[in-house]
Design a protein around this nucleic acid. Structure first.
Length: 484
RNA sequence: CGCGGGGUGGAGCAGUCAGGCAGCUCGGCUGGCUCAUAACCAGCAGGUCGCCGGUUCGAAUCCGGCCCCCGCAACCA
């Protein structure tokens, strides 16, 4: 079994500011990366920014700056988001970096060599308002539904990726690797799309229409289509085209974490591209859902956008990490509301883990002179809970893994109630020490399992639990004042 | 008939694949306790499991039909 783990996030497009969805995706990747680091694996977490394309070029023109400058500002913005959510990353790939252009050129050439890139004529419909190509399916009564204009037919010489050649190979790959896409129903969706037919895709643009991109090798008039080049960041990060030893060490990736909207690019186009280039395919793609707010999609027009920076500023990073990982099921959309957030904070953090630490640390200070070794004599969690925990994390079921941890907290509270240590202090001090040692053990297990999710909290808890003599802990999570 | 997800006590969900007394968390109510952040523990109330029909000794679960909500449909995490 190899003791390394390479995980990536998708790379945000820099035409917009960071939002909650980015924060959530970073968190998912951070938890799994921390989990494997704690297991002793050599872990690499790669994230970055997608900086080419029409929208960035236009935004820069509007702002009167160079596209590179525009992208640079946003790249820093996303790095601040990673810091704000305490996500540890090993590499941050900007698609405008020289190493990425080199990587993309090498990748392109491999596909040319395999005969999967050919020149062709792109004939399509172009909406001037959208500045984008449209398909018949996009139109209503032959008009762009956004601008209510009839798109202009255009004809442009582009390079095409022979995606149509890969339908059967992709399906065969799915059959051999039924766990390739998580959750499973996302694979079902992709099977449907493949079954309905894959067309060759245009993967370049004429520079007269778009110049802000990675140039096509040996053709001064074309740049690569943004999506085509952006996904290559996953190989760029590990030295593709630049450092063969590094690339051999890390590729293929163990896990790509992505949002459900870009599933097809990662589970159809990207695998096909890798096959065409003769490279191995990633082990798994985890497709997460979106965050809704009070049941509705977050959008500027609804005015319900939550600022991820303001949120951690108000509640602190650890409670927000907990809330998002506990309430947003990886597979589906999760709903955000301040009511749910405050309820979780109060019940699980203040009354749950925080209060348990207080009462146990206080009893050990009082009844054991603050000096005691942990021992699991009373409650045998056995291997079942541990197996459950590890299994759930590896399956990306973070919410359920946290459930398991909180099960330990509940059991500890129940044990206290059953044994009544304050009575034992008067009647049976031997029994009292056994119970306290058990409680200490339970808390240590909680810290061990919680570490990928709430590293700062665990750090604080350990400073209490490992101190000798132990003294009563300050509230980990002070109760929120209910003002509403 | 484009594809997919979903409709379960006040709220959020599990259970549906392998039919068998309808479960969890939050909230509400009652009681207990006092080590603890008025926290903790126990118990109670509350549900025609979207609708109609079928199979079955028995259906939230299987089959058929219908209604409603949400997402996707090549560049929106």
């Amino acid at each position: 079994m190899k003791n390394q783990f390479y995980v990536t996030t998708s790379i945000p497009y820099v035409n917009g500011n960071p939002h909650m969805g980015h924060a959530l995706e970073f968190l998912y990747a951070d938890v799994i990366a921390r989990y494997y680091r704690l297991k002793g694996y050599d872990v690499r977490l790669t994230t970055g920014t997608d900086e080419h394309g029409q929208k960035v070029q236009r935004a820069a023109e509007a702002a009167g700056v160079e596209p590179a400058a525009q992208a640079g500002v946003e790249a820093e913005h996303f790095k601040r988001l990673l810091e704000a959510y305490n996500c540890q990353y090993d590499d941050f790939v900007r698609t405008t970096e020289p190493r990425h252009e080199k990587s993309a050129h090498v990748f392109w050439q491999k596909m040319v060599d395999s005969g999967d890139i050919e020149k062709g004529v792109y004939e399509g419909l172009y909406c001037v308002g959208c500045e984008a190509n449209k398909t018949e399916k996009d139109l209503i009564d032959g008009k762009c539904p956004i601008h209510e204009k009839t798109p202009e037919p255009i004809s442009e010489e582009n390079y095409f990726f022979r995606l149509s050649r890969y339908a059967d190979k992709l399906l065969a790959f799915y059959n051999e690797n039924p766990d390739f896409i998580y959750p499973a129903f996302r694979m079902k969706e992709m099977r449907e799309i493949i079954a309905s037919g894959l067309e060759d895709v245009s993967i370049s643009r004429d520079k007269s229409r778009l110049s802000w991109g990675v140039s096509v090798p040996n053709d001064d008039n074309q740049v690569m289509y943004v999506w085509f080049e952006a996904v290559m960041n996953y190989v760029t990060s590990v030295g593709h085209g630049v450092d063969d030893a590094e690339f051999t060490k890390w590729w293929p990736a163990d896990l790509h974490i992505i949002g459900k909207d870009i599933n097809r690019f990662h589970t159809i186009m990207w695998p096909a591209m890798l096959m065409a280039a003769g490279l191995d395919l990633p082990q798994k793609v985890g497709v997460h859902g979106f965050i809704t707010v009070d049941g509705k999609k977050m959008s500027k027009s609804l005015g319900n956008v939550i600022d991820p920076f303001a949120l951690v500023a108000q509640y602190g990073v650890e409670p927000i990490r907990y809330f998002l990982l506990r309430e947003m099921p990886f597979q589906d959309d999760g709903d955000f509301s301040y009511e749910r957030l405050e309820a979780r904070y109060q019940a699980d953090l203040a009354n749950g883990i925080g209060n348990l630490l207080s009462r146990v640390s206080n009893m050990i200070e009082k009844y054991s002179q603050g000096d005691l070794d942990p021992s699991p004599q009373e409650l045998d969690y056995g291997k079942a809970a541990a197996m459950q925990y590890h299994d759930l994390i590896q399956k990306l079921e973070f919410s359920k893994a946290l459930d398991v941890i909180w099960g330990l907290i509940d059991e500890a509270n129940e044990l206290i109630e059953q044994e009544k240590p304050w009575d034992l202090a008067k009647t049976d001090t031997d029994r009292l020490q056994v119970i306290l040692a058990q409680l200490l053990y339970s808390l240590e297990l909680v810290t061990e399992w919680l570490e990928p999710f709430m590293p700062e909290t665990v750090h604080t808890m350990r400073s209490v639990l490992q101190r000798r003599p132990m003294v009563k802990a300050e509230p980990l999570f002070p109760r929120l004042e209910i003002t509403k």
